[in-house]
């Protein structure tokens, strides 16, 4: 694991369940992430524009704009943003739909917090690599 990638890593948590979001936010903060919270898809868009998070933990089921709809909007704002979808109601169809769109992963509640931490770091690494590849790859394809 590349622990150095963690410093300054910005995570946006999007979930309508306040207790779940607050608890997760605390756990991520104590591990050194900069955490932002949004309780709905609309707020997630605002926060993404304002704070430019690296990784988003996005709940699938929310009133109003759901996770899948918010996903498209967030990717429009920042194509390199990495999104980990979260669901309390696993369905293969939705999972594959969102993976095809380029979600970093699709994970199910209840969460294993350690597993999530590794995933956030891996997602961040992928973001850095994608940004670098795009910056250095002008006029060249990848090897």
């Amino acid at each position: 694991m590349e622990n150095s990638t963690k410093s300054g890593l910005k995570v946006l948590l999007v979930d309508d369940e306040d207790r779940f979001r607050n608890a997760l936010s605390r756990q991520l903060s104590v591990r050194g992430f900069r955490v932002f919270e949004a309780e709905c898809g609309e707020k997630a868009i605002e926060m993404t524009i304002a704070e430019r998070p690296d990784v988003v933990i996005l709940d699938q089921e929310m009133p109003g704009m759901n996770g899948t709809e918010a996903f498209d909007e967030l990717k429009k704002i920042d194509p390199f943003i990495e999104i980990i979808m979260l669901t309390g109601h696993a369905t293969v169809e939705i999972a594959l739909y969102i993976m095809k769109k380029g979600a970093f992963d699709y994970i199910m509640k209840p969460l294993n917090i350690d597993e999530l931490l590794y995933k956030i770091e891996d997602a961040y690494t992928r973001r850095l690599l994608n940004v670098k590849k795009t910056n250095t790859g002008s006029g060249r394809g990848l090897v």
């Binding site: 696993a90 369905t91 293969v92 999972a95 594959l96 993976m99 095809k100 992963d105 699709y106 199910m108």
Partner: peptide
Amino acid sequence: IKSRVTAISVSVFSMIT
């Protein structure tokens, strides 16, 4: 069943990607 099948489907699809 649903959670295991979903997890496996996601993992296999990720591997393909």
